[in-house]
Every structure is written in C-alpha cells, then in structure tokens.
Design a protein around this nucleic acid. Sequence first.
DNA 1: GCACGTTGTTAAACTGTTTAACTAGATCGA
DNA 2: TCGATCTAGTTAAACAGTTTAACAACGTGC
Lengths: 375, 375
Amino acid sequence: MSDTTLPRSTSRVIAAKATEPGEPRSTSRRTFDDARKPISLRDVAAEAKVSVATVSMVLNDNPRISRATHLRISRIIERMGYQPNRLAQSLSSRYTRVLGVMLPALRHAFADAYFGELISGICDRAGKMGFKIMLEQAKPEFVKERKHIHIFERRYVDGLLVLGMNDRHHFLEDFADGRYPLCVVDNKFNQWKLDHAVCDYAGGAEQVMNYLLQLGHRHIGCIYAAPEIQTAADVLHVYRKRLGDSGHEVDDSWAQDGRFTDEGGAAAAAALLKRHPEITALFCGNDKMAIGAQHYLANAGIRVPEEVSVVGFDNMQNAAFVTPSLTTVHLPLYQVGALACERLIDRVRGRAERVAEVLPTHLVVRNSTAMARQS
Amino acid sequence: MSDTTLPRSTSRVIAAKATEPGEPRSTSRRTFDDARKPISLRDVAAEAKVSVATVSMVLNDNPRISRATHLRISRIIERMGYQPNRLAQSLSSRYTRVLGVMLPALRHAFADAYFGELISGICDRAGKMGFKIMLEQAKPEFVKERKHIHIFERRYVDGLLVLGMNDRHHFLEDFADGRYPLCVVDNKFNQWKLDHAVCDYAGGAEQVMNYLLQLGHRHIGCIYAAPEIQTAADVLHVYRKRLGDSGHEVDDSWAQDGRFTDEGGAAAAAALLKRHPEITALFCGNDKMAIGAQHYLANAGIRVPEEVSVVGFDNMQNAAFVTPSLTTVHLPLYQVGALACERLIDRVRGRAERVAEVLPTHLVVRNSTAMARQS
DNA sequence: GCACGTTGTTAAACTGTTTAACTAGATCGA
DNA sequence: TCGATCTAGTTAAACAGTTTAACAACGTGC
C-alpha cells in the first residue's frame, strides 16, 4: 500500500496496522507452510469472524456472550485445537495458577517417604483444582537473596506451601503480613501468624501413652528428635506430661535424641537401656528411629516385644514389614498435603481469615508391643 | 515532525497515545499511594530518564550499552529493588526456563526413594542452571487429553524429563520427532528416538554375576520385576546369558517376578526355594525385593549368607542397615538425574544431536554374600 | 416518535518485556 | 569535505492474551 511515501512522524502514531478484511494480521501470519506455530486467539477470531474480545469472553464464560455465539465459537476452538497461551493469560490476569512447594535444603530431601507422601497429596489436589506445582528448596542462599519473595514478585507462583520447616527458618516471618499466600504443611508456628494444616501429633502421642500405660508399662523411654519442630516438641511434651500424671518421676535421662535416623535410633536405644535397664517400653518419635531401636535390641539379644515394647510414629510403608511389625501412629500425610493445598488455593482466591486445620491421627497396633514384663 | 498533514487512511491508525515527556504512562501509574504493586521496567526507565529498551538491554548485558550507562542503570535497578516479571519475559522471548518432570501415575509415586534420588539430582542441577522444575503425573486422562503436548503449547515448560516410564507409555512417541525437547531419565527406548541418560544396569548385572560365579555359586535364582522396562530386562538378560555361559542350564523356573516390592520379593524367594532347594544365591532386581527375600529366609530359618547369599540392586539408604547388610549394585541415580537435566537444557538451547548417556555402576559388597555352601 | 434499557459485540487500552529497525552524533579514511 | 562506519542509544512493533468503555441494534414504555 501507499506507505512508502509517508512523511511519518510519528511520535504520536504508534499505530499497529489495523485488521482489515483484505489482509488481517492473522492470515498474514498464518500461511500455508508455517503450520508450526501454535494457534492464537487472533486466529480463532479471524476464523469465526468476530473480535478477539468475543473469543476471550467465550473462553472465560462471560455471560455477556449469547448462548448461540458461545456454542458456535466453542466448536471452532475445539476444531482448531486452540490452547490459550498461559503466559499471556497470566500476564494480563491476576493469576499464574502455579503453587510453589518449598522443601528444606537437606541433601536428598525428595528421597524421603515423609515428604513424598505430603507432595503426593499436594500434587493430586492441586491438579484437580487446576493448579501446577513448582518445586523449590530452602537453601541458605535462596533465602538470603530473598528469592522466597522474588518467586512472588516475578510472578512464578500465586502461593507457597512449606514443608519440613522449623523455628530457625526465619524467612517465614516475611509471610506473616499475609501479603503473599502461604500455608505451612504438617507443622505450626506460634510466633508467626500463618495458615497451617497439621496432623494431630499430640493426640497420637496421647493414644500411645494411654496404650502403653494400659499395658502396665511404667518405665518408658522416649527417643525423640528435633524439638525445635513444634510437632516433635508436642509429642515429647505429651510423653512427659502423661508420665508425670501416672506418678512416674519425670526426668530428662529417660529421653534421648535419635536425630530421626535409623542409626540415631539404635544409638539412643543403647544409651537409654544402659542408663535404665528397667525400661520396658520405648516410644520413638518416628518409625525410622523405632526400626533402628529394634535393630539394636535384636543385636543385643533383647526380645521385642516380650522384654521391651517399641512404638513408632509415622506409619511408613515398611513399618508393617519389619520383624516384629511395628506398632505406630498413623499420620494422614497425604490428606494433610491435600488439605493444605486446598486452603492455600482458597487464600489465593481471596479468603481473608486465617485457618488452622488439624487432622486426626490413630494408633496402629501391631506386634512390637505387649504387656510390660513382670521382672 | 509535520505529521498533522498525513494523508493516511484512518482505518490503519489504531494509535495508542505516545509516551510524551509531559505525561508518561509510567508516572501516571505510579502515584504516591500505590506503593503496593511491584516495580516495572517502565518505572526504572522513568527514574533513569532513558527508554525501557535501554533498561532491558542493561538487564540482558547487551554490549550496545556503554559501561557508564550500564553501571548507572544497574545501580538504579538495585536501589529500586526491581525484579523483572518473568511472565512478560517469557511471553516476549522464546524461553520459560521451566522444565517439567513427569512421574508415573502410581499412587504415592513421590514417596519413593528411587524417584526421590532422581528428582534431587534434577532439581539441584536445574537450579544451578537457572531453571525451575514443574511436576506432572502421567495419569491416563492427562495423556488422553494430550496434556503432555499442551504443557508445551501453552508455554508451561521448555522441556520435559520423564521418569519411570515403560514401553506402554505410548505418548512418548509424540516426542520422537524432536519438536519438543524431552529426555528419558534412567531408562531407554529402542523403538523411539529419544535422548536419555541411564545407569549401566547391564554392567552392574555383569559385576554381580562375575562375583557370584567367583564365589562358587552355580545355583543362582533371580527375582526380577517389570521386564517391560528396558533396564530391568537388561539385568534379566545378563543373568540368563552369564548363567548359560557358565554351563548352567538356562530355564525360566529359576527366575521369578517379585513386582519390585518387599512382599513380592519374599513371595518370589519362597517360590524359588520351594522349586529349587539347591539354590545358593538369589540375585534380586532391586533392594526392596532383596530385603523381602532376606525376611523370608530369616523366617524360614535359612541363614544369610551361610546358606543362601542375597544380592540387591539400587543401593537404597537402608540397604546398608538391614541385617545382614546387603550386597548390592550402586546406581548413581542422583548423577543420572542431574546429567539428564543438563542434556535436556542443552537441547532446549538448540543442540540438535541425539544423546545417549550411560553412567557406570558398581558392586558394593557387604555381608549378605559369601562363598557357596558345599552341600 | 423518542427516551430508555438490554443485549451482543467491538475497539482500544493494558499486562511487562524483547528486539529489529532506525537515528543522532562522533570518528575516520580518501 | 564528504560519505562511510561506529557507537550508543531510541522507537515502535511484537508477544498473546484480558478487561472495559463505547456503541449499535433492538425491544419497551409512555
């Protein structure tokens, strides 16, 4: 056309070429040979001979569009196999429909059945609600560079789920103002106002202590770990309280740190039994430590459960398969992950009130526990 | 300059108002009270009194910008705490800098140490190379609705890593044309041309068979699983071949499916020993099945390794901690994950050649193996 | 016959960045 | 001194959608 002769000026005219019937942008872009690049809204609009706004409104079920048009355009969208570009969608709308999942910076954090269960629940629920999951690890430099804020500012995520965090993860404080949606998964923090969904660790510990006391145990050792984690502290607290209530002298020498590992559990069991040979039951803060304790007892020739009962906490897959199979507390980790995810999405969508969900736990009695020995 | 006299057809002029010194868009947006919304490139440009293009070029280290300007603008960016919006970046550029990780649709797939190790390697390497990880599960409906293509078309990801896939995952065929970058992690497919990074399963199996034959074992049972997975088939094939080479009659009754589980391993061990009481060694396709077999043997009163040697495959964390500790093949899963990730990123960045990486494995000798008994 | 409301659609502005094309000014060789 | 080449920027057009003010067409009510 005649624009070679234009004396264009131009500071005022930014002027995209208008979409004219003769050579609309879309057709000029979409020639026979470039079947490669994906179809855009414009292509659909051109095909349907309506404006892009109309197609957009059809996609978003805007009531301003008549049923007839909606149906007609929907069919064209279907036929052309159009998929909206979510970068463009997210750029102009307020949502990315992506949630971050932050794990602690432990080497091989993913190779852990505990986190695995939580993530399973999160992923399934997120998928059902139309959200994607992006993984993050809370490495020291990540937090130091304030990347936990950047993932929001840079529009990577709409919300964040944090797993396996403890009181020393001070970056959580940055979320206390509620500016960026966050939900703590299977833990809680009293010092910061944060949403959380958590298993009822204290309730589980109550059940364990009830059960052991009913079986006649009075000399109960505790293998705990990580008391800086609120839920772990809850378990230890219930152990101490119930033991005190039953008339037993509460004394720190009956509890030993097992660092949440097999080896730590074995070492802690060894230390406790050396200190207090009269122990008839060991209450362990997780199944790994319980299995470690069982190994130590087996090696030391102490029979489980005849001489010493062992109770775990977690109900991990292999808890049922060790010998003797482990009495433990079942934690609904999958459900907690799913619920936390759902509550976070509510928050992203605008819920203002803080939530604190607690899911019930229950004791699973297997073969590692019996009546207290009479000696 | 003299543009009022333009003879231009008006239908061509859509004309946004140009950014004039008097009322630039940016200042009109950024008033005193809305300190809330994040700073944009425009705000930085306005502050520095340059065009947005200049700021963009500074961010991308474009050599067209002088050192002086680069420094000056960098400082302003720093001071204002500007973070580029990556939705806009990705929309405009060709990359999202996000990789998808696809897991099989097993319930609780994440709660598996095998996938965990791979994902650890992937995440660490991706993070170092400036990529984020998005999780996907290969559910039947996901594949049926062609979502594996949609995540590319909708610009969720630049590339895809697939874990734990087998020959029945036909959607992989859609990636054989190389249109969308994909890398198979710790597996390989002969029927489709796909990049992969894999542990040397056959090499590991060779080492196991060498070792067992050297110890004098001739009656070796095999607990395998999932022969539809190429790597698992490789192990079984090496077992058969080496046994045949050693003069032993190769016969399917010496191999039994253990479904990759504890229980399956125990059941398979029981079946094999019932069928062939002369067995002196069991070669298991993974550690879980090996540990299951050990449990069966312990319960049946058969001593390990004095009467029967047991070999695993995987070197999972607890392999060292069971009693007796398990002789197994170490798989560099973390490294395979990391390498696959790196090769995928190469591909995203334009590498055209197909790659097939194989990482060496090695035998870890522990206490579950000994000389063949003489009976 | 005209103001008014409803309905359906469109044009234009907007999201925040990258990049190709352009330009003013300095340098330089012929 | 002129034109070519460099340098260091600017401009405007993408990228692919959403949102909203405006508007046309149509049916009512008075």
